[in-house]
Design a binder for these strands. Structure first.
Length: 726
DNA sequence: CTAGGTGCCATTTAGACAGCATGTC
DNA sequence: CTAAATGGCACCTAG
């Protein structure tokens, strides 16, 4: 179908044509003619990169131009929210306003109600629903991207609840990967279903086994025995490859190994550009390996890397500078990084209780990354059979059907949080109303019988009543209590809230960082580190040494919680080091963790620390304890000792600069305000930009001649070894 | 004596959402 | 509890 023929606003067609699109892909046309444009719900189950985004853009903009109101676009990852934000921004020329909001990213500080398209993670939107903003009722359309995540164990319930809430109140457009039971999903949502395997770039799949590449169509190619030859061959052909493995260690190892072989295939300018890239990367034990791999045009990609490094790698891959990425599943679900050839080294994964097959759905998502729309006519996806029978892999992953989706609403952690929210934030007044709400869920639709769900719900309600989240009056009506309401708004697991509450008396008597950090780490919302075998004794010793600081007893070795407890101690120690200004690099080394891990721990601890304070405020807090907690929260956020808290509030001053200033004698904001520019510039890490920022912050004019001074100083430095090394 | 290979054994194992109020080195 | 891959280490061998 031609874009001209679309029954939508002319302005929409104009913008699409300006992108160079004249003709729609068949599944896009089918989707748009399914009734979505007239307001019908739609489940669109087609492969990644076959144009789902364009369909949702047309549906959103058409609806907004015609009816007004708001559209919400739900994504599973923060990084995807940013990606979509940049894409959708283009529609602002039509007078629509686009905003993205996630836990750590608001595109603007203006209130969301003023925007027409709101991109959010599912959890963020769930949280917005709980806060009950007025603009929610203006939402006329919800687009749920990657809706198959409804079947994800830990995050599926959130998505399911959002859709249950919005069903009937707004139009729903659900975008899904190919799944085993898309019909079931469509029935639940009372939606049309468009399914297709069509792709703009053809996909050729095969299985590799000791030098032989068996294509799905029966063809066989011969290669050197080792699978690495597949990646090398792609590079020789002037293409790129993406390799998926199942551990971080493997990703790093294979990247380094490939790097040494691919280095010689690079051109001189490429080598130079790669060197440039390498020099822009921060130094730490993980990036040291990354840099070595990069020099050969190869990168590894996993959650241990920082955000900045990950985006850098993705960008350099997209611009074809990096030839091969060896990645853990991070990349399969993340932002768009297609490659000519996808090589799947592993089809099994350790899942806490042994090795399990990676689901077909996920393998197909990896394979779907094959083929770059603008450069390739065909993309190749190859599964490597190393220990597995090649024929089995072919049957299961290439000819096989993806799994069915199952509701994960009954997952206890998610369920108790959702039930609490229903009572405290969604005016569910008694058990009957609760059950009738649950009847609208995918769980109920799929199982038909919700007796077991009712039983679970009852237990959760008892738990919530017993622990003071909610209460029940004489007529069996639910009454939200402040503790429950706040827990729900803070978006923490009720069990986390209970743990905090139970610890308050002890905490009040003995407030101290280690005890608080262990408490936070013991919470189901925290990601704790694992104590390694050889570390276990050290952390046990540490626990005993700090026994009087803890708010919990040390479990015995036989106790099932023992292993977890040591992990909590390790996590608490990392946090303690952080607020005692131990340099990041040393933290990575001593605890054998990667930058991404530290970042994640800090992010979670920050959120939970805030939540702990907010909950403590509900229980007749002691003023000095409250202040102590607030200071600790700030220390946690900035990674500094107490004496730096004042300095770190200044713009562009973090833990390093604050320490440098303090050691140089600038101990308060007052000191800095009075300081001479020249003296400030002497301090390590403080340059003209930072000083200007400081003066602007204080609202003071820069002393005359200061700028000249600094230029002079810089000139003087020119020609020195220092300047040369820069 | 040493560089490199072999075999055995212990150890480890993917990812990432949420509050709130503003800006790291 | 499950099991595959990896890295460290002791030991061995060819030169």
């Amino acid at each position: 179908m031609r874009v001209d023929e679309l029954p939508v606003d002319e302005r929409i067609k104009r913008i699409i044509r300006e992108r160079g699109i004249e003709e729609l892909y068949p599944p896009q046309a089918e989707a748009l003619m399914s009734g979505v444009l007239e307001g019908k719900n739609l489940v669109l189950a087609i492969p990644t990169a076959s144009g789902k985004t364009l369909v949702s853009e047309i549906v959103m903009v058409n609806k907004l131009l015609r009816e007004g109101g708001k559209a919400v676009y739900l994504v599973p990852l923060k990084a995807l929210a940013e990606e979509k934000y940049r894409e959708f921004k283009e529609w602002e020329v039509l007078g629509l306003r686009v905003a993205a909001t996630t836990g750590d990213y608001d595109s603007t500080d203006e209130w969301l109600g003023r925007y027409d398209v709101i991109i959010a993670t599912a959890e963020k939107f769930d949280s917005l629903l709980r806060h009950g903003s007025n603009w929610i009722e203006d939402v006329k359309l919800v687009v749920a991207d990657e809706v198959h995540l409804i079947g994800s164990y830990d995050r599926g319930a959130t998505l399911e609840m959002i859709l249950s809430h919005m069903l009937g109140k707004a139009q729903i457009l659900a975008l899904s990967a190919t799944v085993g039971n898309a019909e079931e999903l469509a029935e639940w949502l009372d939606a049309a279903l468009v399914m297709s395997d069509w792709r703009p770039v053809q996909l050729r799949k095969g299985v590799f086994h000791i030098g032989q590449l068996f294509w799905e169509d029966g063809g066989i190619d011969r290669y050197p025995e080792n699978w690495e030859s597949l990646a090398i061959d792609a590079v020789k052909k002037g293409k790129q490859a993406l390799v998926f493995v199942n551990t971080r260690r493997s990703a790093e190892k294979e990247a380094l190994s490939l790097s040494s072989k691919i280095a010689r295939l690079l051109t001189k300018p490429e080598t130079r550009q790669l060197d440039e890239l390498v020099s822009s990367i921060e130094d730490n034990p993980t990036t040291e390996k990354l840099k070595r791999a990069l020099r050969g045009g190869v990168a590894f990609h996993h959650a241990g890397l920082s955000r900045a490094e990950r985006t850098m790698i993705e960008d350099a891959f997209r611009s074809k500078l990096i030839k091969v990425i060896v990645a853990t599943p991070t990349l399969a679900a993340g932002v768009n990084t297609p490659a000519f050839r996808v090589i799947i080294r592993d089809t099994k994964r350790y899942a806490g209780f042994g090795w399990t097959d990676i689901p077909v759905l996920e393998i197909q998502q990896m394979m779907g990354r094959a083929g770059r729309p603008k450069y390739d006519k065909v993309g190749e996806a190859i599964i490597v059979a190393r220990t597995e029978e090649p024929r089995r892999l072919m049957e299961k992953y290439i000819h096989g059907k993806p799994e069915k989706l199952f509701s994960m609403l009954a997952n206890e952690q998610a369920f108790r949080s959702q039930i609490l929210a229903l009572v405290t934030n969604f005016r569910i007044g008694n058990f009957r109303e609760l059950v009738s709400f649950l009847e609208r869920t995918f769980y109920a639709h799929q199982r038909r019988d919700i007796a077991s769900l009712e039983y679970k719900a009852k237990n959760v309600v008892y738990f919530l009543i017993e622990n003071g989240f909610i209460d029940m009056d004489m007529n069996d009506r639910f009454m939200p209590l402040p503790f429950g309401k706040r827990s729900s708004q803070l978006y923490i697991d009720p069990l986390t809230a209970k743990k905090f509450k139970d610890a308050f008396p002890k905490l009040e008597n003995n407030p101290n960082p280690f005890g608080i950090f262990q408490l936070i780490a013991s919470t189901p919302d925290m990601a704790t580190l694992n104590a390694r075998r050889r570390e276990m004794e050290d952390y046990l010793d540490l626990a005993y040494e700090m026994e009087d600081k803890l708010y919990t007893n040390i479990p015995y070795y036989e106790d099932s919680r023992f292993q977890g407890f040591l992990g909590q101690i390790k996590t608490a120690k990392v946090l303690l080091d952080w607020i005692n200004e131990v340099p990041e690099t040393r933290i990575y080394e001593t605890y054998n963790i990667d930058p991404g891990d530290l970042y994640r721990i800090l992010e979670l601890a920050d959120w939970l620390m805030y939540s702990l304070i907010e909950l403590y405020r509900l229980f007749e807090p002691e003023e000095d304890v409250l202040n102590y907690l607030r200071d600790l929260h700030l220390r946690l956020r900035h990674g500094v000792r107490e004496e730096l808290l004042e300095l770190v509030k200044l713009p562009n001053i973090g833990r390093k600069r604050a320490r440098a200033l303090y050691n140089a004698g600038f101990r308060s904001q007052e000191d800095i305000m009075r300081a001479k520019v020249r003296d400030l510039l002497e301090v390590e890490g403080i340059g003209m930009k930072v000083v200007e920022g400081l003066f602007r912050h204080f609202g003071v004019e820069m002393p005359k001649g200061a700028k000249k001074d600094s230029k002079k100083a810089e000139k003087a430095r020119k020609g020195t070894l220092d300047a040369f090394l820069k």
